[in-house]
Simulated scan of single mutants.
Amino acid sequence: MAKSLQEEARCPVCLEFFSDPVSLSCAHTFCFDCIKTWMLERETSAMTCPLCREVSEKSPKEEWQIRVLTLLIKQHGALLEQSLHLSDAILSFQEHMTLDAATANSFLDLSKDLRTVQCGKICHNLLKGPERFTHMACVLGSSRFHFGRHYWEVEVGEGKEWALGVCKESVNRKEKSILSSELGFWVISLKGNAIYPSSFPQTRIPASPDLDRVGIFLDVDLEEIKFFDVRNDALIYMQSDLSSLEPLRPFFCPEQPGDGDSGTSLSLYP
């Protein structure tokens, strides 16, 4: 019985005990290095089993990618799992933040404590300052991030259309711009029941139906920003390569009012 088990645990190619075994679609199993060498020696694009010569349904590239991915998950699974959730380390960087009234579009209504913004149908400020957004109903946070790690949370309520994130200090505020990373915006935008990051090519992420608060973690030194669904303790999206030689500003774009109703506000939390 023991001898039979030992034979089952040996690779048919090298006759040694399996090392990082790979199973083909024909159910025959080999060492990862053995099957890789087998394929390289034959210089073929088809994954052929050394025993039964059956052509695998998966390409060599797929087989190797799956194997490498499995190994990475085993080695770094704990770190991967940690990055998907709001850890105490991230929450320790939470800071008090206010909105910069000088940047607010004239149709935005800011609370007295500069912690809540809502878009209305009435122009509140006719002055067109150099920092004010003219054609986009947006406002920036008062903070300017040159380095370090920063975390803040925004209550989005039941809004069906908003955008949150960061932007360069020098973004164009006098024209209607596309919220793209190429133009200096690193944000996520909710449209209906889906979230769209500002990266290209654009991807669509289904939004949780009970999403009501978004956590934003910015690591300027690592050039990385993460967006979290706070209620469900889940990562929504992560974007890297926030390369900028100038300060980054928190960015807020609330829902615009529709016919017969007012747009939902955005509020800094707590």
Score class of each variant (00 low, 15 high):
residue 2 A to I: 11
residue 3 K to N: 12
residue 5 L to V: 15
residue 6 Q to F: 14
residue 9 A to S: 08
residue 12 P to N: 12
residue 20 D to S: 12
residue 21 P to S: 03
residue 21 P to K: 01
residue 24 L to N: 09
residue 28 H to I: 11
residue 29 T to L: 06
residue 32 F to V: 05
residue 35 I to L: 04
residue 38 W to T: 02
residue 38 W to D: 01
residue 41 E to N: 12
residue 43 E to S: 07
residue 44 T to R: 09
residue 45 S to F: 13
residue 46 A to I: 14
residue 48 T to W: 09
residue 49 C to M: 12
residue 54 E to T: 07
residue 55 V to A: 11
residue 58 K to D: 12
residue 59 S to P: 00
residue 61 K to E: 14
residue 63 E to M: 15
residue 68 V to R: 13
residue 69 L to E: 08
residue 73 I to K: 09
residue 76 H to I: 00
residue 80 L to P: 02
residue 81 E to K: 09
residue 83 S to D: 12
residue 84 L to K: 12
residue 85 H to E: 01
residue 86 L to K: 10
residue 88 D to P: 04
residue 89 A to R: 15
residue 90 I to Y: 07
residue 92 S to N: 08
residue 93 F to D: 06
residue 96 H to L: 12
residue 99 L to P: 00
residue 100 D to F: 01
residue 104 A to W: 01
residue 105 N to E: 04
residue 105 N to M: 01
residue 107 F to C: 07
residue 109 D to I: 12
residue 110 L to C: 09
residue 110 L to P: 02
residue 118 Q to F: 01
residue 125 N to Q: 04
residue 127 L to C: 10
residue 130 P to K: 11
residue 133 F to E: 08
residue 134 T to D: 04
residue 141 G to N: 00
residue 141 G to H: 02
residue 143 S to G: 14
residue 149 R to A: 00
residue 150 H to A: 05
residue 152 W to Q: 03
residue 156 V to W: 01
residue 157 G to K: 02
residue 157 G to W: 02
residue 159 G to V: 03
residue 159 G to C: 11
residue 161 E to H: 10
residue 162 W to M: 04
residue 163 A to Q: 05
residue 169 E to T: 06
residue 169 E to I: 09
residue 170 S to C: 10
residue 171 V to T: 00
residue 175 E to M: 15
residue 175 E to K: 15
residue 176 K to A: 13
residue 178 I to K: 13
residue 181 S to R: 14
residue 181 S to V: 15
residue 183 L to F: 10
residue 190 L to S: 01
residue 195 I to Q: 00
residue 198 S to K: 05
residue 199 S to R: 11
residue 200 F to Y: 11
residue 201 P to E: 01
residue 202 Q to L: 10
residue 207 A to K: 03
residue 213 R to G: 06
residue 220 V to S: 03
residue 224 E to V: 14
residue 225 I to V: 13
residue 225 I to W: 00
residue 229 D to S: 06
residue 229 D to C: 04
residue 231 R to Y: 12
residue 233 D to G: 10
residue 236 I to S: 00
residue 237 Y to S: 04
residue 239 Q to F: 10
residue 249 R to F: 14
residue 252 F to G: 05
residue 252 F to E: 00
residue 257 P to T: 14
residue 263 G to Q: 04
residue 264 T to Q: 10
residue 269 Y to A: 13
residue 270 P to G: 08
